[in-house]
Design a protein around this nucleic acid. Sequence first.
DNA 1: GACGGTAATATGCCTAGGCTTATTTGGCAA
DNA 2: TTGCCAAATAAGCCTAGGCATATTACCGTC
Lengths: 235, 235
Amino acid sequence: MSRPSPYRAVKAHVLARIRSGEWPPGTLVPREEDLAETFGCARMTVHRALRELADEGVVERRRRAGTRVALPTTRTAPVEIPRVDREVEAMGASYRYLRLARATEPASPSAAARLGVPEGTEVLRVECLHHANDSPFQLEERWISLDVVPAAREESFADVAPNVWLLERLPWSDVEHVIGATNATRKVAGHLGIEPGEAVLEVERRTWLERRVITYVRFLHPGRFYRLRTAGRPG
Amino acid sequence: MSRPSPYRAVKAHVLARIRSGEWPPGTLVPREEDLAETFGCARMTVHRALRELADEGVVERRRRAGTRVALPTTRTAPVEIPRVDREVEAMGASYRYLRLARATEPASPSAAARLGVPEGTEVLRVECLHHANDSPFQLEERWISLDVVPAAREESFADVAPNVWLLERLPWSDVEHVIGATNATRKVAGHLGIEPGEAVLEVERRTWLERRVITYVRFLHPGRFYRLRTAGRPG
DNA sequence: GACGGTAATATGCCTAGGCTTATTTGGCAA
DNA sequence: TTGCCAAATAAGCCTAGGCATATTACCGTC
């Protein structure tokens, strides 16, 4: 599995029993002390192994009740939502950024709701297009809260993507993603070089710093080519 | 943040510095020993705090080089890909399962490729529909490898969803998800009760036990209502 | 100046002990 | 019975030490 190391050995041992079906869901895993004895190691070592398995959702632990094998419910899968430029370059394609629009404007009801600011607050709206090998790859529509990021007022975003600009400037504490599918409007289709009505993958992201929304973005990808990919293993 | 406890305190401390912008990306975090001294705790305690932060991608650690604040790249976000029945019930709706088709058949080239079996191998194909409050919610098309799950040959799947049946029967070691968007074909639209051409969210899942693919599924959701949701925080 | 070996250093991991705390079980009482 | 409380138990967390190992920085050599 990985290089040997007592705690890894314990993890691997327990995982192997579960994988083999020898310990079906609900089975009580031996107590930390017992495992420590059978492996000839300290209890803390076993503790770490079991704790990690619990973090990964493979087992469930409760004081006094012990450790039991969890039901293999299809748990959270780490979806990597990548930075466009990196992703494009990782595909071996050349990346190009194009700003379509930029304006400070009073927040519309929906934008205000998503940014968590009163309606009509002045916010910055940026629209841009990301290309891979000169064909449109992602259309981005973004709102930035000027209360949280006043410096954005001075930035044109003509050459640097808001994404990159923001990440370089300030940390964040929470993100939320919402993934859906919609049909391309005429405008969207025009930008992405597809037919109106074609399915597009829509990823919305809100980013917080402590309690305040920094920015809300909507990414649209031509559904025909683009896919989000995930590979997860429990352990 | 959470209930106090020395290692949590250290984590919170470091995280707070990063969040506040006091330690921008690249900053060298104090050595474990020094933090241990300033917090009046053992080095192992600091070690655990920093290790967890490293696991979460907040910092990067290298022997001899020390611990530094990582670039806040929009990392992996845990997307919960839920069990339909649970999800529907969580919305307070009533869940209904309907099997549309079931057949053992020789694997088509594409099915064979995804299951990792030779073309023409006999596989089980199941098609079903999941309802929320009697309106179609998810269309499922699934292939099951009979080599890995011979017991599936005896199961009609008339009353129990393949999902549930499989999870109750065998463990898995790896999953892969691919999320995309497509336009509903006439057939899909008919089943989901939408117009042909409407955007649908497509989630494909492959599940392995050790090296062998157990099953490959394709879930289709009406794009108009359905969304995948994610909330992540680094820490 | 380029190159290579060596020592210093920070993290990685371990041990063996201890106290703390949630939870369950069993027994006692109403 | 039912309800409540106490004891027992298993995990949670901590300490203070130690050895292992990756990596860098430095220094001497060519």
